[in-house]
Amino acid sequence: MAALMETEGLVRHFGGLKAVDGVNFRLEPGEIHALIGPNGAGKTTFVSLLSGRLPVQAGRITLSGRDITRLPAHARVRAGIAYTFQITSIYPRLSVFDNVALAVQSRGAADIAAGVAEALARVNLTGFDAQEAGTLSYGHQRLLEVAMGLALNPRVLILDEPTQGLAAGEIEGFKALIRSLVPDTTILLIEHNMDVVMDLADRITVLNFGRVLAVGTPDAVRADPGVQDAYLGGHHAAG
């Protein structure tokens, strides 16, 4: 089966730092794919290359076989790659409705109000429409961010540490939400919380020093000795 998204030899250096150093990567249609690795392994840089927030120095990115390496970020979003920020990035001074409406109208939906209602319902924020987004609780702001990603109706949804700062109860709800999205939407997830990763992911890619250390199912990755040395074996042994 053809990959939905694929990279070949992707490179991005910052001065002497090889943040992403020749990464080959496949995202299969309909899967939940987790990207893990120690801090500074290049995860955020890698998804920034995928979403077009950073320019690629070498290598190739394809979406359904189409080369999108040189496509600017906004055009990639239109092509179906949505990105939610690691540090919550919403429009704090606009209403919740306007926040989501901006995403809905971006995909060219005819009925904006209906699209907003649907996206808010999916993340359980119905009824918050008129509230100023900046006054929402932190957990709700994260959900709003996810709602904005969903409202784009993306083919690929890239989530950068979505559960960071969420309470335990909120995490359960979040996992259920992600499961409900596949297989219509393919999920690429950067996550530090190993419970979430092992629970949700169909496949995992482990990055270390800008290179792919291992790829496979959660069980295979857990069993990989290289991964245990570099990552799980350290301070995450209990996870």
């Binding site: 979403s51 927030r53 600017p72 970020a73 906004h74 055009a75 979003v77 239109r78 949505a82 990105y83 920020f85 990035s89 919403i90 429009y91 704090p92 001074r93 606009l94 306007d98 409406a101 901006l102 995403a103 109208q105 971006s106 995909r107 904006i112 904005m148 784009l152």
Partner: peptide, 24 residues
């Protein structure tokens, strides 16, 4: 209008707007 909303979005958070598919 929807375009007016996008104008305000540029003022409020250009990077977010770009990642919603708008060319700043």
């Amino acid at each position: 209008s929807p375009f007016g909303r996008v104008m305000v979005a540029m003022r409020e958070n250009e990077e977010r707007s770009r990642m919603l598919g708008y060319d700043p």
